[in-house]
Nucleic acid binder design. Sequence first.
DNA 1: AGTGAAACACACACCGT
DNA 2: ACGGTGTGTGTTTCACT
Lengths: 152, 152
Amino acid sequence: MSLNQVDRQILALLQKDASLSTAEIADKVGLSQSPCWRRIARLEQEGYITNKVAILDAKLLGFDMLVYAHVRLSSHGRDQLAQFEKLIMSYDEVTECYSMAGTMDFMLRIISKGIEGYELFVRDKLLCLEYVQEVHSNVTMTCVKRSTALPL
Amino acid sequence: MSLNQVDRQILALLQKDASLSTAEIADKVGLSQSPCWRRIARLEQEGYITNKVAILDAKLLGFDMLVYAHVRLSSHGRDQLAQFEKLIMSYDEVTECYSMAGTMDFMLRIISKGIEGYELFVRDKLLCLEYVQEVHSNVTMTCVKRSTALPL
DNA sequence: AGTGAAACACACACCGT
DNA sequence: ACGGTGTGTGTTTCACT
């Protein structure tokens, strides 16, 4: 159920580099392979580790535009809330979406190729929805830091 | 140098699930193991795949607070810009940081345990810096979507 | 819970096409 | 460039402490 220090160490290692072998992790946390493997399997099974992914180089692949957009829905749009969220999930350009505290707003992280790509997205996939009242775009310039790791 | 359709397919698969074996990927893209393995190795070597990470369940680990903070630096703070960025990179609570177009602002993605954890962070690690002029917190409520995948 | 060994699958290299 | 085959290395299980 709960986690001890070794479990946290394992998680900390894996969230930085999932290509580490069980033997390497076992070595770093001071365990032998078998018990280390069992712990990792347990951490996966209990849901602490949700999945493993490859991180790609966005710039190298031509995605030079990263925008955080605030989307305000009209008040009667609450009815279509579920539909809006479902739609958002189907948009690959939207890599993240959160509803914000205190407002009827959503914040979207949108990745695209150039301003043209971003404008196309906003026009064809956001503004075309009747219940979208306002879209405010926060364009990022340089990425100082980007990590998927939690502060364990 | 450039990528064909098969390469993109491989990248698309790996950015969703990096635990796929070469054989499984080869099967899905219609190649046999050897050429598929060579392509993946090339994609890593050329930097398209930067690394592989395990994604952990933030809520399960007690990180129930996710805030996007806009930080405004005072104009003479430009001198300490490099120092600020270095400091930000050392803070584990800051998982992302971007400088924003058009302003002297930075946007920080901060993950913490409860409002208490967040307040502690802002007080002890942001407001204590003389050149930090203003911190505006956008608190997220529910996560509609979160993905690390690019829209290939 | 940790250790050791054994079965198995996979990653990686070397061939031929 | 793709495909087949082999060998070492990592993963996964099992029997034991």
